[in-house]
């Protein structure tokens, strides 16, 4: 039976290659989302996919491949056949996973150069929030208190080396303070533990924290972005407050396997450029309270290089957690 199976698999591999010669795309495109339905990546992927669908006249199927903090889905896309029929919607963590693998001396799940960027879709700065009943009114209060008792103020994150962890460590090292890290499995539990009073601070996206700020449960202290957030016009950025290098975004961007032929990448870039101007797409983003942050491939590549370098440095600084 095994021989039969391998013969059939061999046959299956041959087939699509002959079909792909006609004008791209001739069959549905798969958009891999390395997180479960409903997460940030998924919420960005679905409107993008449906806007692309209209322009390509072929279905763009969102395929959720969650697992290992995104490593499973990303490596599926990184190792997919570079025929333009597999694309990936990834988050900032894409550059962190190989760094963490390197740190532990593990066989990396994938390398960043196995993927080529198509476009950046959204980028949300994280917001530093503390409970509304905490004594810190400003970032200066927080830093002063943290200096007085190093390692005592605790913050939650969505996991070790998760984006939320790295953002906080970036700030802590710039401010020269020591905070206690409490990792959870996902952004949801991290928020729950802050609201329950188990930790004293959290960095998370505006979509997550703004409703709780409006309800008077949380107080925002600072914003990791280069500019203020529309929903929180009174919250200063770290750069305004004098922390020059503290900049961080939870971004979502489209990638394709690195060996995908240039004409197909070009087509995907054109389609994405048009898709992000789709009215329905913009409406969905507005509902999610996420501004569009479109960047085409060359600028996205630059953004990515800078971001990856910053994150790699943060991972190295944290080192192995004992």
């Amino acid at each position: 039976m095994k021989r039969l199976a391998s013969a059939m698999i061999g046959l299956a591999l041959l087939l699509p290659a002959t079909i792909a010669a006609q004008e791209y795309p001739t069959r549905p495109i798969t958009m891999v989302v390395p997180f479960p339905p409903g997460g940030v990546a998924d919420q960005t992927a679905r409107p993008t996919a449906s806007a692309m669908e209209k322009l390509l006249r072929q279905p763009v199927v969102v395929s959720n491949r969650p697992g290992a903090a995104g490593a499973v889905g990303i490596s599926v896309a990184a190792n997919a056949r570079p025929d333009g029929y597999t694309i990936l919607m990834a988050l900032s963590s894409i550059s962190v996973i190989p760094e963490a693998d390197k740190l532990f001396g593990r066989q990396p799940a994938y390398q960043l150069n196995q993927l080529t960027p198509i476009a950046l879709i959204t980028a949300d700065p994280t917001i530093l929030v503390v409970p509304a009943d905490s004594p810190w009114k400003t970032l200066a209060d927080f830093v002063a208190d943290a200096k007085k008792r190093p390692g005592e103020i605790s913050y939650s994150s969505s996991g070790v080396y998760s984006t939320l962890h790295l953002a906080m460590e970036m700030f802590a090292s710039a401010a020269d303070i020591k905070l206690k890290h409490v990792p959870f499995n996902g952004a949801g539990p991290a928020l729950t533990s802050l609201l329950g009073g188990h930790v004293q601070a959290l960095a998370s996206g505006p979509g997550v924290v703004v409703p709780h700020i409006e309800a008077g449960k949380l107080r925002p202290l600072a914003n990791w972005g280069a500019a203020r957030v529309a929903a929180l016009p009174d919250v200063p950025t770290f750069q305004e407050l004098g922390y020059k290098d503290v900049e961080f975004y939870i971004w979502a961007g489209l990638f394709a396997p690195a060996q995908t032929p240039a004409p197909l990448i070009g087509k995907l870039r054109d389609i994405t450029r048009a898709a992000v101007n789709d009215a329905e797409f913009l409406g969905t983003l507005k509902n999610m309270q996420t501004p569009r942050a479109y960047l085409d491939a060359p600028e996205f590549q630059k953004f990515l290089d800078k971001d990856a370098a910053r994150l790699a440095e943060a991972v190295k600084r944290i080192g192995k957690v004992e």
């Binding site: 290992a68 499973v72 070790v160 957690v321 004992e322």
Partner: peptide, 20 residues
Amino acid sequence: GIDTMTGFLRFQYGIIDLGD
């Protein structure tokens, strides 16, 4: 799978999917 506290992968043997 991954140890939430330290990020160590236990008994994973290079199979990425076992990370979770």
